[in-house]
Computed example of a mutant assay.
Amino acid sequence: MDVIKQFNNAIAYIENNLCGEIDTNKIAEIALCPYDKFKRFFSYMTNMSVSEYIRKRRLTLAAYELLKDQEKIIDLAVKYGYSNADSFTRAFAKQHGILPTEVSSDTSLKVYPPVSFYVAIKGASELNFKIVDMDEVKLKGISKQFIGKAADRFEQEHIMWSNQHDDVQNQVCKTVEGVWYGIWNNGIYSIAKKANEIDDNPSLASITIPSGKYAVFSTDFGGFAGDVLPKLREQIFDCWLPDSGYTQTDDYEIEVYYLYPKSEKYKRHYEMWLPIDMSLR
Protein backbone atom coordinates (compact mmCIF):
# COMPACT_ATOMS: atom_id res chain seq x y z
CA MET A 1 0.00 0.00 0.00
CA ASP A 2 3.05 2.32 0.08
CA VAL A 3 2.61 2.83 -3.66
CA ILE A 4 -0.98 4.01 -3.09
CA LYS A 5 0.21 6.40 -0.38
CA GLN A 6 2.92 7.81 -2.65
CA PHE A 7 0.47 8.32 -5.51
CA ASN A 8 -2.02 10.03 -3.19
CA ASN A 9 0.80 12.30 -2.01
CA ALA A 10 1.43 13.18 -5.65
CA ILE A 11 -2.26 14.00 -6.10
CA ALA A 12 -2.09 16.18 -2.97
CA TYR A 13 0.83 18.06 -4.56
CA ILE A 14 -1.27 18.64 -7.71
CA GLU A 15 -4.25 19.83 -5.65
CA ASN A 16 -2.08 22.24 -3.66
CA ASN A 17 -0.69 23.77 -6.84
CA LEU A 18 -3.77 24.11 -9.05
CA CYS A 19 -3.36 27.87 -8.89
CA GLY A 20 0.31 27.73 -9.80
CA GLU A 21 2.91 25.79 -11.71
CA ILE A 22 2.76 21.99 -11.50
CA ASP A 23 6.20 20.44 -11.91
CA THR A 24 6.08 16.96 -13.47
CA ASN A 25 9.53 16.22 -12.05
CA LYS A 26 8.16 17.00 -8.58
CA ILE A 27 5.25 14.61 -9.19
CA ALA A 28 7.71 11.87 -10.12
CA GLU A 29 9.81 12.63 -7.05
CA ILE A 30 6.82 12.39 -4.71
CA ALA A 31 5.37 9.28 -6.41
CA LEU A 32 8.81 7.61 -6.35
CA CYS A 33 8.49 6.52 -9.96
CA PRO A 34 9.14 7.96 -13.43
CA TYR A 35 6.49 10.48 -14.49
CA ASP A 36 5.59 8.38 -17.56
CA LYS A 37 4.74 5.48 -15.25
CA PHE A 38 2.62 7.78 -13.04
CA LYS A 39 0.77 9.06 -16.12
CA ARG A 40 0.01 5.55 -17.37
CA PHE A 41 -1.24 4.43 -13.96
CA PHE A 42 -3.38 7.56 -13.55
CA SER A 43 -4.90 7.24 -17.01
CA TYR A 44 -5.64 3.55 -16.53
CA MET A 45 -7.36 4.12 -13.17
CA THR A 46 -9.36 7.26 -14.02
CA ASN A 47 -9.88 7.06 -17.80
CA MET A 48 -8.41 10.53 -18.25
CA SER A 49 -4.93 11.97 -18.63
CA VAL A 50 -3.19 13.90 -15.87
CA SER A 51 -3.38 17.11 -17.89
CA GLU A 52 -7.11 16.61 -18.49
CA TYR A 53 -7.63 16.04 -14.76
CA ILE A 54 -5.74 19.21 -13.88
CA ARG A 55 -7.77 21.23 -16.39
CA LYS A 56 -11.07 19.87 -15.09
CA ARG A 57 -10.11 20.48 -11.47
CA ARG A 58 -9.07 24.06 -12.21
CA LEU A 59 -12.33 24.75 -14.03
CA THR A 60 -14.22 23.16 -11.13
CA LEU A 61 -12.57 25.50 -8.64
CA ALA A 62 -13.18 28.44 -10.96
CA ALA A 63 -16.90 27.58 -11.03
CA TYR A 64 -17.02 27.49 -7.22
CA GLU A 65 -15.40 30.92 -7.09
CA LEU A 66 -17.90 32.36 -9.58
CA LEU A 67 -20.75 31.00 -7.46
CA LYS A 68 -19.28 32.56 -4.35
CA ASP A 69 -17.83 35.91 -5.38
CA GLN A 70 -18.50 36.60 -9.08
CA GLU A 71 -14.77 37.06 -9.70
CA LYS A 72 -13.61 38.93 -12.79
CA ILE A 73 -13.08 36.55 -15.71
CA ILE A 74 -9.58 37.82 -16.47
CA ASP A 75 -8.54 37.32 -12.83
CA LEU A 76 -9.76 33.73 -12.86
CA ALA A 77 -8.07 33.13 -16.22
CA VAL A 78 -4.72 34.23 -14.82
CA LYS A 79 -5.22 32.39 -11.53
CA TYR A 80 -5.88 29.06 -13.25
CA GLY A 81 -3.16 29.26 -15.87
CA TYR A 82 -4.87 30.62 -18.99
CA SER A 83 -3.13 33.12 -21.21
CA ASN A 84 -6.22 35.29 -21.70
CA ALA A 85 -9.91 35.57 -20.85
CA ASP A 86 -11.02 34.17 -24.22
CA SER A 87 -9.16 30.88 -23.85
CA PHE A 88 -10.46 30.51 -20.29
CA THR A 89 -14.02 31.24 -21.44
CA ARG A 90 -13.82 28.62 -24.21
CA ALA A 91 -12.48 25.96 -21.82
CA PHE A 92 -15.07 26.85 -19.18
CA ALA A 93 -17.94 26.64 -21.68
CA LYS A 94 -16.69 23.30 -23.00
CA GLN A 95 -16.73 21.75 -19.51
CA HIS A 96 -19.77 23.40 -17.95
CA GLY A 97 -21.94 24.07 -21.00
CA ILE A 98 -22.34 27.76 -20.15
CA LEU A 99 -20.20 30.88 -20.26
CA PRO A 100 -18.54 32.12 -17.05
CA THR A 101 -20.70 35.24 -17.21
CA GLU A 102 -23.83 33.05 -17.14
CA VAL A 103 -23.03 31.37 -13.82
CA SER A 104 -25.63 31.98 -11.14
CA SER A 105 -26.93 30.08 -8.14
CA ASP A 106 -29.41 28.05 -10.20
CA THR A 107 -27.24 27.12 -13.20
CA SER A 108 -26.16 23.51 -13.67
CA LEU A 109 -22.41 22.93 -13.54
CA LYS A 110 -20.19 19.93 -14.29
CA VAL A 111 -17.68 19.61 -11.47
CA TYR A 112 -14.95 17.04 -10.84
CA PRO A 113 -14.09 16.22 -7.22
CA PRO A 114 -10.45 15.43 -6.44
CA VAL A 115 -9.32 11.89 -7.10
CA SER A 116 -7.93 9.64 -4.41
CA PHE A 117 -6.53 6.15 -4.80
CA TYR A 118 -7.71 3.36 -2.54
CA VAL A 119 -8.67 -0.20 -3.25
CA ALA A 120 -11.44 1.56 -5.18
CA ILE A 121 -11.16 4.91 -6.94
CA LYS A 122 -13.30 7.87 -5.86
CA GLY A 123 -13.75 11.18 -7.61
CA ALA A 124 -12.53 12.35 -11.03
CA SER A 125 -15.88 11.52 -12.63
CA GLU A 126 -18.43 14.01 -13.90
CA LEU A 127 -21.02 15.22 -11.42
CA ASN A 128 -23.93 17.41 -12.55
CA PHE A 129 -25.14 19.81 -9.89
CA LYS A 130 -26.69 23.22 -9.38
CA ILE A 131 -27.58 25.41 -6.39
CA VAL A 132 -31.30 26.21 -6.21
CA ASP A 133 -33.38 28.44 -3.93
CA MET A 134 -36.35 26.11 -3.49
CA ASP A 135 -39.91 27.08 -2.65
CA GLU A 136 -41.87 24.99 -0.16
CA VAL A 137 -43.31 21.78 -1.67
CA LYS A 138 -46.51 20.22 -0.29
CA LEU A 139 -46.70 16.42 -0.54
CA LYS A 140 -48.83 13.49 0.56
CA GLY A 141 -47.30 10.15 1.40
CA ILE A 142 -46.39 7.37 3.80
CA SER A 143 -43.49 7.45 6.27
CA LYS A 144 -41.56 4.75 8.11
CA GLN A 145 -38.88 4.77 10.80
CA PHE A 146 -35.62 3.33 9.47
CA ILE A 147 -32.76 1.75 11.36
CA GLY A 148 -29.23 3.08 10.89
CA LYS A 149 -27.69 6.07 9.19
CA ALA A 150 -28.66 7.79 5.96
CA ALA A 151 -25.94 6.03 3.97
CA ASP A 152 -27.32 2.62 5.01
CA ARG A 153 -30.95 3.26 4.11
CA PHE A 154 -31.17 2.00 0.53
CA GLU A 155 -31.90 -1.65 1.29
CA GLN A 156 -34.77 -0.56 3.55
CA GLU A 157 -35.95 1.82 0.82
CA HIS A 158 -36.11 -1.07 -1.62
CA ILE A 159 -38.51 -2.90 0.69
CA MET A 160 -40.79 0.14 0.88
CA TRP A 161 -40.84 0.72 -2.87
CA SER A 162 -41.08 -2.94 -3.96
CA ASN A 163 -44.49 -4.25 -5.01
CA GLN A 164 -43.40 -7.62 -3.65
CA HIS A 165 -42.92 -6.23 -0.14
CA ASP A 166 -44.43 -3.05 1.37
CA ASP A 167 -45.61 -1.63 -1.99
CA VAL A 168 -45.93 1.85 -0.48
CA GLN A 169 -45.82 3.49 -3.89
CA ASN A 170 -49.07 1.79 -4.92
CA GLN A 171 -50.68 2.81 -1.62
CA VAL A 172 -49.83 6.46 -2.30
CA CYS A 173 -50.93 6.53 -5.95
CA LYS A 174 -52.01 3.86 -8.44
CA THR A 175 -50.36 5.72 -11.33
CA VAL A 176 -46.64 5.00 -11.46
CA GLU A 177 -45.70 7.49 -14.16
CA GLY A 178 -44.74 10.95 -12.96
CA VAL A 179 -42.56 12.61 -10.33
CA TRP A 180 -42.09 10.89 -6.96
CA TYR A 181 -40.21 11.89 -3.82
CA GLY A 182 -38.23 9.79 -1.37
CA ILE A 183 -37.36 11.81 1.72
CA TRP A 184 -34.88 10.94 4.46
CA ASN A 185 -35.50 13.09 7.54
CA ASN A 186 -33.42 12.23 10.60
CA GLY A 187 -34.15 8.50 10.41
CA ILE A 188 -37.67 8.68 8.97
CA TYR A 189 -38.10 7.82 5.28
CA SER A 190 -41.16 8.91 3.29
CA ILE A 191 -42.49 8.03 -0.16
CA ALA A 192 -44.68 10.81 -1.52
CA LYS A 193 -46.12 12.74 -4.44
CA LYS A 194 -47.29 16.34 -4.73
CA ALA A 195 -50.57 16.71 -2.89
CA ASN A 196 -52.37 18.19 -5.90
CA GLU A 197 -51.46 15.22 -8.13
CA ILE A 198 -53.16 12.44 -6.16
CA ASP A 199 -56.70 11.65 -5.06
CA ASP A 200 -57.77 12.68 -1.59
CA ASN A 201 -56.83 9.85 0.77
CA PRO A 202 -57.21 10.38 4.53
CA SER A 203 -54.72 7.62 5.28
CA LEU A 204 -51.86 9.61 3.73
CA ALA A 205 -49.78 11.98 5.83
CA SER A 206 -49.05 15.58 4.86
CA ILE A 207 -45.34 16.09 4.22
CA THR A 208 -43.66 19.42 3.50
CA ILE A 209 -40.29 19.97 1.88
CA PRO A 210 -39.16 23.26 3.45
CA SER A 211 -38.06 26.18 1.35
CA GLY A 212 -34.38 26.97 1.32
CA LYS A 213 -31.12 26.58 -0.55
CA TYR A 214 -30.45 23.12 -1.96
CA ALA A 215 -27.66 21.50 -3.95
CA VAL A 216 -29.36 19.49 -6.71
CA PHE A 217 -27.52 16.55 -8.30
CA SER A 218 -28.79 14.83 -11.45
CA THR A 219 -28.20 11.36 -12.87
CA ASP A 220 -28.03 10.41 -16.53
CA PHE A 221 -31.16 9.10 -18.22
CA GLY A 222 -32.01 5.46 -17.68
CA GLY A 223 -30.75 3.19 -14.96
CA PHE A 224 -32.55 1.99 -11.87
CA ALA A 225 -32.81 3.94 -8.65
CA GLY A 226 -31.45 1.13 -6.49
CA ASP A 227 -28.25 1.10 -8.57
CA VAL A 228 -27.61 4.76 -9.33
CA LEU A 229 -28.78 6.62 -6.21
CA PRO A 230 -26.41 4.90 -3.72
CA LYS A 231 -23.50 5.61 -6.07
CA LEU A 232 -24.59 9.22 -6.54
CA ARG A 233 -24.90 9.72 -2.79
CA GLU A 234 -21.45 8.24 -2.19
CA GLN A 235 -19.94 10.61 -4.74
CA ILE A 236 -21.71 13.60 -3.17
CA PHE A 237 -20.65 12.87 0.41
CA ASP A 238 -17.21 11.38 -0.19
CA CYS A 239 -16.05 13.80 -2.86
CA TRP A 240 -18.28 16.80 -3.57
CA LEU A 241 -19.06 18.02 -0.05
CA PRO A 242 -15.43 17.98 1.18
CA ASP A 243 -14.25 19.70 -2.00
CA SER A 244 -17.01 22.28 -2.49
CA GLY A 245 -16.82 23.96 0.91
CA TYR A 246 -20.60 23.81 1.39
CA THR A 247 -22.08 22.24 4.52
CA GLN A 248 -25.22 20.14 4.88
CA THR A 249 -27.59 21.96 7.21
CA ASP A 250 -29.47 18.93 8.56
CA ASP A 251 -29.73 15.14 8.33
CA TYR A 252 -32.19 15.64 5.51
CA GLU A 253 -31.95 14.31 1.95
CA ILE A 254 -34.44 14.24 -0.89
CA GLU A 255 -34.54 11.77 -3.77
CA VAL A 256 -36.61 12.81 -6.78
CA TYR A 257 -37.73 10.08 -9.15
CA TYR A 258 -38.72 11.14 -12.67
CA LEU A 259 -40.50 7.97 -13.75
CA TYR A 260 -41.42 8.05 -17.42
CA PRO A 261 -40.72 4.48 -18.57
CA LYS A 262 -42.58 4.67 -21.90
CA SER A 263 -42.24 8.34 -22.80
CA GLU A 264 -40.18 9.63 -25.67
CA LYS A 265 -40.41 13.26 -24.51
CA TYR A 266 -39.56 12.56 -20.86
CA LYS A 267 -37.04 9.96 -19.77
CA ARG A 268 -36.46 8.21 -16.48
CA HIS A 269 -33.82 9.82 -14.32
CA TYR A 270 -33.24 10.83 -10.72
CA GLU A 271 -32.05 13.71 -8.56
CA MET A 272 -30.77 14.13 -5.04
CA TRP A 273 -31.43 17.39 -3.19
CA LEU A 274 -29.27 18.36 -0.22
CA PRO A 275 -30.03 21.36 2.01
CA ILE A 276 -26.86 23.42 2.29
CA ASP A 277 -25.57 26.40 4.19
CA MET A 278 -25.88 29.66 2.27
CA SER A 279 -22.25 30.64 2.86
CA LEU A 280 -19.06 28.78 2.03
CA ARG A 281 -16.84 27.67 4.88
Rank of each mutant, 00 (worst) to 15 (best):
A62L: 07
M278P: 05
W180E: 08
L67T: 03
H96V: 00
D200A: 05
E102A: 10
A91W: 09
K262A: 12
S116K: 12
V168M: 03
K231L: 03
K262L: 11
S143A: 01
T46N: 06
G123C: 07
I22K: 08
I191Q: 06
D75I: 12
I207A: 03
V50Y: 06
R57V: 05
F217H: 09
A85H: 14
V176R: 03
D166E: 10
Y118S: 14
S203K: 14
P275D: 09
F7W: 04
E264P: 00
D251A: 00
D86L: 10
S87L: 09
D75C: 07
I209T: 00
D250Q: 10
C19M: 10
W273S: 07
A120E: 02
I4Q: 10
I131V: 13
N185C: 12
G222S: 07
A195R: 04
Y181P: 14
Q70S: 15
V103L: 08
I142V: 15
L109G: 02
Q95N: 04
A124D: 06
L32A: 14
E253D: 05
E253S: 13
A124V: 00
K26G: 04
C173W: 05
Q95H: 04
V168F: 06
N25E: 09
N186P: 01
D23Y: 11
I183D: 09
L67F: 01
P100A: 05
F41T: 13
S116W: 09
M134F: 08
T46R: 13
Q6L: 09
L61P: 02
S104D: 15
V137A: 06
P114A: 07
K56F: 15
N17Y: 06
Y181T: 03
L241R: 12
D152H: 08
I198T: 11
Q164T: 02
K37G: 05
A63D: 06
I147A: 14
Y214D: 01
Q164G: 14
V168C: 04
G222A: 13
G212P: 01
K265R: 07
D152S: 07
S108G: 01
W180V: 02
V137C: 08
L109R: 03
Q248S: 07
G182D: 03
P210T: 06
V103G: 02
D36I: 08
V256K: 11
E264Q: 12
E197D: 15
R58I: 13
G245R: 05
R40A: 00
Y64Q: 09
A93V: 11
C173T: 01
I188K: 15
L204C: 06
S211Y: 01
S279Q: 14
G141D: 00
Y252M: 03
C173S: 07
Q248H: 04
D133S: 12
